[in-house]
Each structure stands twice: as structure tokens, then as C-alpha cells.
């Protein structure tokens, strides 16, 4: 299924303007300054249950641990790569509730309750996902280090429907740098997979 109407807009269309007015500043709830938050609300260690590729993982982490480092260093899911750790390269792209995100910019704690999909979760047993197959057939990689992120990004790009033309694919795949510069083949692979997935 292609996402033709973003989630937020659908929800907003269901809501009336009365709800909007209630949320506007004039009606902002005043909170008493005396209500200091309880220190216990803040945790120094967090017990997490992360759902990755359909499997539940329990782990206890410091809040500063990112989703990327949790996947790589604690769950041995090393297919997701760290290229910059700043959101500047896209190598760590995963799907969170079906949407592509840079896992280096997500705290593991924030990912609790979300459905995480990584490169390891795409194939059906030994049968690669059509997007994985398209990357192989189009020769859409060289060193392979950015490839997991490219494929996860391609999954979302196709799902979002941003595959109408080579130009559109190029723009919507530009959050994934490839220093080997397999860009023309990546564009071709995304187009081919989009065609196959209809």
C-alpha cells in the first residue's frame, strides 16, 4: 500500500475546529509553579522492551544509548551501520513504525513500543525481499557499507510513493550518501523494485 495521505492530515480532517480552538494559546492550561516534578519521574537506567523485526528484546540501558548502538552493540544486529553518528549520512536508516529514520538520532528509550525493522528483517527466510533483489540485480552497491541504509530507505521511498520519476527517486534517496557512488544503479534499483511492487 502506498501512503497517499499522511497520518497527520487524516487525523486533522477528522477533528473539528473546536478542538483546534481548545488547543490554542488562549486556552493554554496554566500549571502551578508550585507543582515541582517528582525526581523519581526521571530514570537513570531504563528497562526496555524493543520490538525489532517482530522479535521482542529486553534490555536495560542508560538513557543515552541510541537505538543504533542498542542494535549494534547490545543486540548483535550489526547490519545497521554507523557512518557518521550525526544524521549526516543515512547509513543507520531503519524503519520505525514503518517510517524511515536515522537510528543514530533516536534514543533506544524513545523506540520502546515502536515497531523497528532493520535490514535483517526484510528477507523471508532465504528469499530476499524484492528491494534486496533489485539492489543485487542493478549492481546498486560496491563496498556495501551504506547498502543496508540505502535498502531501508528504498523500502520507505517506495512505500511513500516517491518513485514517480528518476528525479524524484534521486531526491528522496539523497538522505543516504554512497561514497563509492553507486547512485545511478541505486536509482535504477529503486525504480525496478517500485515497478515490481506495484
Amino acid at each position: 500500500m502506498k501512503i497517499t495521505s499522511p497520518k497527520v492530515s487524516r487525523r486533522s480532517l477528522l477533528r473539528g475546529s473546536a478542538a483546534a480552538a481548545a488547543a490554542s494559546l488562549a486556552h493554554a492550561r496554566q500549571v502551578s509553579a508550585q507543582n515541582a516534578p517528582e525526581e523519581s519521574a526521571f530514570e537513570a537506567w531504563i528497562d526496555l522492551r524493543l520490538t525489532v523485526n517482530g522479535q521482542a528484546h529486553a534490555l536495560t540501558v542508560e538513557p543515552r544509548v541510541t537505538l543504533l548502538d542498542a542494535l549494534r552493540e547490545r543486540m548483535q544486529l550489526t547490519g545497521t551501520k554507523k557512518g557518521c553518528n550525526r544524521g549526516e549520512c543515512g547509513a543507520c536508516t531503519v524503519l520505525m513504525d514503518g517510517r524511515r529514520v536515522n537510528s543514530c538520532l533516536v534514543l533506544a528509550a524513545s523506540a520502546e513500543g515502536r515497531k523497528i525493522t532493520t535490514i535483517e528483517g526484510l528477507a523471508d527466510g532465504d528469499t530476499p525481499h524484492p528491494v534486496q533483489r533489485a539492489f543485487a540485480e542493478a549492481d546498486a552497491f560496491q563496498c556495501g557499507f551504506c547498502t543496508s541504509g540505502q535498502i531501508m530507505s528504498a523500502m520507505a521511498c517506495i512505500e511513500e510513493g516517491h518513485t514517480g520519476s528518476p528525479e524524484e527517486i534521486r531526491e528522496w534517496m539523497s538522505g543516504n550518501l554512497c561514497r563509492c557512488s553507486a547512485y545511478p544503479q541505486i536509482t535504477a534499483a529503486v525504480a525496478a523494485a517500485a515497478e515490481e511492487l506495484g
Partner: peptide, 20 residues
């Protein structure tokens, strides 16, 4: 087709920083 396609497109190719 590249012989490393099956591992590199599935996240199974092990790079140095993937070794623990």
C-alpha cells in the same frame, strides 16, 4: 552479479566494527 550481493543486501556482511 557481484558475489557479495547476498550478504551485503541482507546486512550479513561482517565489517571490522561488527566484530565483537
Amino acid at each position: 552479479t557481484r558475489v557479495d550481493a547476498p550478504t551485503k543486501t541482507t546486512g550479513q556482511a561482517i565489517y571490522a566494527n561488527d566484530v565483537n
